[in-house]
Design a protein around this nucleic acid. Structure first.
Lengths: 152, 152
DNA sequence: TCTGATAGTTAGCACTGTCTAACTTTATTC
DNA sequence: GAATAAAGTTAGACAGTGCTAACTATCAGA
């Protein structure tokens, strides 16, 4: 067997699918990872605006458990991506796009959370796990979660 | 109300828990994120060794969907962390610690996968989502998943 | 109104993860 | 065994996420 075989020539099947499909799955996970931070910020900003009328970096930092400069940098990126608008030394606003993303994230978060609770998980662990899981569930899985939770 | 109140003085409760606990959740997610890559590599290396007798960077790269230098760098880090051992231009071996981690990852992966399948998800989506979710489920959630899957 | 406390920014460092280009080593094949 | 193909490494770039230290702006209260 040549070196080439293992890597590409043979459609090596390890778990029922060729390597390429697996690579796509990992690519998807990497994409999700790069969106996660933005989603967490946008979701939190929407919540702060809803509850307190404004979203200030200091509150974002406290809730995310990071330092102020980290927040500044992240907000710069979000602004660059068109998800928020802001002026120096002022609090943060969501653009239409940011608001749409926030709504979508909230929806996913709540479905996952309700699902975990309906499985019998305690509230604290459910919240913790939902935070991690919500960025990695497909629409299809989400639909099953929602159906299960409303049936339970 | 002073500026300080929102951030720290008042134990602001937004979703039933003070901000500090939320910060811990996000901290946990960040920790998980930093472990994810190592876990993906170790799991894959174990699988390649099992199926093909050896784990070569070229195969790792193909399956993860990244370029060779990315793999080299990642393997350097894994070696530094004591999870793998390797010699230049040679294939990769797991240390005892690496093997233990691989076993643990495989266990989690399979529980999550079986759970998603037992919910009625198609195989491809299940595999895809399991890849993303497996790093973010607590032991407690995993136990519930396992129980549900074996009951279904 | 001015002054001290709080909030926010900037600059600079460290680490990770990705890439391309160029090079070295190893394997295959004639 | 020499030539070629494949695999692996190194170097260097770039972006993201985190930090501390030091600076600037804003706010609250005397």
């Amino acid at each position: 067997m040549t070196q080439r075989d293992l890597a590409t020539a043979t459609p090596v099947v390890t778990d029922g699918r060729p390597a390429d499909l697996r690579a796509e799955a990992f690519q998807g996970v990497r994409d999700a990872r790069s969106r996660e931070l933005a989603e967490d910020y946008v979701e939190l900003i929407a919540e702060l605006i809803h509850d307190h009328g404004e979203a200030r970096p200091v509150d974002i930092a406290a809730r995310l458990g990071v330092r102020a400069p980290t927040v500044t940098k992240a907000l710069d990126r979000l602004a660059r991506e068109g998800l928020i608008s802001r002026a120096k030394y002022r609090s943060v606003f969501l653009t239409d796009e940011g608001r749409a993303l926030a709504r979508e994230c909230r929806r996913r978060h709540e479905i996952v959370l309700r699902f975990l609770l309906s499985l019998g998980l305690d509230a604290e662990t459910a919240e913790h796990d939902a935070e991690g899981i919500e960025h990695h569930v497909s629409e299809r899985t989400l639909a099953l979660f929602a159906a299960f939770a409303s049936k339970a």
